[in-house]
Design a protein around this nucleic acid. Sequence first.
DNA 1: AAAATAGTTGACTAGTCAGTCTAGTCATGT
DNA 2: ACATGACTAGACTGACTAGTCAACTATTTT
Lengths: 204, 204
Amino acid sequence: MPRVSDMKERLTDAALDLMWENSYGTTSVDSICERAGSKKGSFYYFFKSKSELTVAALEAEWNKNKANMDALFSPTIPPLERFDRYFDYVHDRLAELQEECGSILGCPLLSIGSEVSTQDAGVRATVDRIWDRKIKYFESAIRDAHAQGLIAAPDPEAKARALFACYHGTLAQARIQNDVGLIRDFKEVARDVLGVKQAHATSS
Amino acid sequence: MPRVSDMKERLTDAALDLMWENSYGTTSVDSICERAGSKKGSFYYFFKSKSELTVAALEAEWNKNKANMDALFSPTIPPLERFDRYFDYVHDRLAELQEECGSILGCPLLSIGSEVSTQDAGVRATVDRIWDRKIKYFESAIRDAHAQGLIAAPDPEAKARALFACYHGTLAQARIQNDVGLIRDFKEVARDVLGVKQAHATSS
DNA sequence: AAAATAGTTGACTAGTCAGTCTAGTCATGT
DNA sequence: ACATGACTAGACTGACTAGTCAACTATTTT
């Protein structure tokens, strides 16, 4: 088997970076190639279309993040603390990216998903699938918290979806207003949504 | 003063419809003109650019909705019921639009804002401004509810922003998953976010 | 060394994009 | 009736779009 290339990964990385910072529509195949140090020919050697590249880029991003998510939501951590750690992690990451590019970027799943949902069934389905996987982390933590009597959540799946939606709304608002403030305060909102019974504050 | 035309309004209407259903990026000036029954010349007679048209379209949409918002959030209505009425109204409207176009469209402010925020300062600022105006309805209802002892909200402005963000996250998720379900259930989530003390259910 | 596989190159097509411009049309005030 | 100013028509430009293709290069197996 001759010649191995890391170009496929470079292309998905470049695509996600550009789409996250700008948008799906304004990210051209040319600009993706330029950032990846590739040419059109290589792009279409690896991917049939911009749409397929996007699906691959989203899945690749998920795979890169999965181990970290598993660690943040490890069952060894008290359930409500998992959320605090996750929200802190995302906050810090977005603040870091803001220093690089000047903007709070929010969540690429929501930005891309919202932009293409009515136009590209493949990308929409991919966003949907990854969205559901991420909700599983929430669901499991909520179920554990409920079992420990920390919160009242008879329907963990619904509660997880609701909290996830609320969080993403906050990330989207932060992107639009280019302000980390709301993200920083989200831990308190999360406690309300979860219905935390007492003061279960966890320091970071 | 010769000749009066309703073309300006037809153009802003067409633009908002197309951008709401599809996206900012995929809505071309040509397609806006076609839907408005206009030609390029008229478009650029009224607007300097697609960006300016978008600003005008968002402001026009706000003006069309304002009276209705004033009614839904009338101080004559018990504060928590205002939210229920508003959420019902948006739900019904989106369900209606879904029958027309097959998709849950979410909120155009979030879709457009999230898409262009890092690229078009004018549109971003407009979204931001209208967003803030809408939050005022929430804030006032929250303050009233707090004064009546229905909820515990010492910082009505922060609570309003949080609830608004949560709601928009739900609308965005509904768009991405093309499912009204979450929107239907949002009233309960809102009660959690607001911290409603007892059962203050209001029937619609 | 040669063949086969894996990847790269960049010019090319055909269509679309936002925006320009000149020549017009049409209702209204005088 | 005619002049004026509000509006419209649509051809045009140049840049950019996604995607194609045939020739090419590099690496590994035999």
